[in-house]
């Protein structure tokens, strides 16, 4: 659980990504230790979601490598990354709105199922067997675990925001992930929902042995949960370490508050007043 000691499960190295002339990421590099909870923080527009999208394969970086379990996946397409064990949720919930909770979760297992078209049309043998096994596992390991059994047959579109986030996590868990990437898992949630989600994230790590990589703004939660925090600002890593190290880092304080020196800020505020008086 101490970053750098074990072989990292996910390694990002020298990642540069630009859209037209705008550099979204510049030489971004960090490591995610297996079994850790690693959080990427940074002000709005720092490039956190771009980083996530690059890791899950939507964006092709101009330079740099992404290694997953020691294997270079920089050129791997998103569906193959999913099969390897890289699961993610989205900031603005990307559930399938026309489907029930159960079907959404089952979709997570897609890449691990073998049913082909012919099996499916006749729903016999393999298809039926696989579906029943899947249903049982989804019910007993995921729905139970995330406490969403009361909504399993509901269409996703009628659920509250907090529940939708939970269903999205359930779907990601159905993917049998090795690394679970969560993009702002508690954004827009109230205190209680946030605490529930924090508990689920810790439980996922404990019970499933899944490594968690998340982007989050809720500082309280980040500092409580994370083993390792990476701070991005203007597309660059400005700090990287334990929560305590990062909190004490003057660069980080500057990025969040605009200035490292509070007394200087106070002085600047008071000067015009003094002139006026």
């Amino acid at each position: 659980m101490h970053p750098g000691k074990a072989n990292p499960i996910l390694e990002v190295e020298g990642l540069t990504l630009s859209f037209g002339g705008i550099k979204a990421l510049t030489d971004v590099g960090f490591e995610v230790a297996p079994g850790s909870i690693t959080t990427v923080i940074g002000p709005n527009g720092a490039g956190k979601t771009s980083l996530f999208n690059t890791i899950s394969g939507f964006y092709k970086p101009a330079t740099g490598r992404i290694r997953f379990q020691g294997e270079d996946i920089t050129a791997t397409r998103p569906p193959e990354r999913a099969k390897l064990g890289l699961a993610r949720s989205f900031q603005n919930i990307a559930l399938f709105r026309g489907m029930t909770v159960l079907d959404n979760i089952k979709l997570g297992r897609h890449a691990h199922l073998r049913t082909n078209v012919l099996d499916a049309l006749f729903y016999f043998g393999r298809a039926r067997h696989e579906e029943m096994k899947l249903r049982q596992e989804v019910e007993e390991r995921i729905i139970d675990f995330l406490e969403i059994d009361h909504i399993r047959h509901m269409p996703v579109s009628v659920l509250s925001y907090g529940l939708q986030k939970r269903v999205e996590m359930a779907r990601a868990l159905a993917m049998r992930p090795k690394v679970l990437m969560l993009d702002e898992p508690v954004a827009g949630m109230n205190r209680e929902e946030t605490e529930d989600m924090a508990r689920f994230i810790l439980d996922v790590r404990e019970e499933w042995g899944v490594t968690v990589l998340m982007v989050e703004h809720d500082m309280g939660m980040v500092m409580d949960l994370s083993d390792h925090v990476v701070v991005l600002n203007f597309g660059q890593v400005i700090a990287d370490g334990t929560p305590a190290e990062v909190q004490a880092n003057p660069e980080v304080i500057k990025a969040y508050l605009g200035s490292g020196d509070v007394s200087e800020l106070r002085q600047r505020l008071h000067q015009p007043l003094a002139v006026g008086a």
Binding site: G98, D103, H110
Partner: peptide, 18 residues
């Protein structure tokens, strides 16, 4: 399910391994 996923949100279908 994969068909419906593509209809509803093709980007997240891809991330799920479709």
């Amino acid at each position: 399910r994969a068909f419906i996923a593509i209809r509803d949100r093709d980007i997240s279908a891809e991330v799920l391994g479709i």
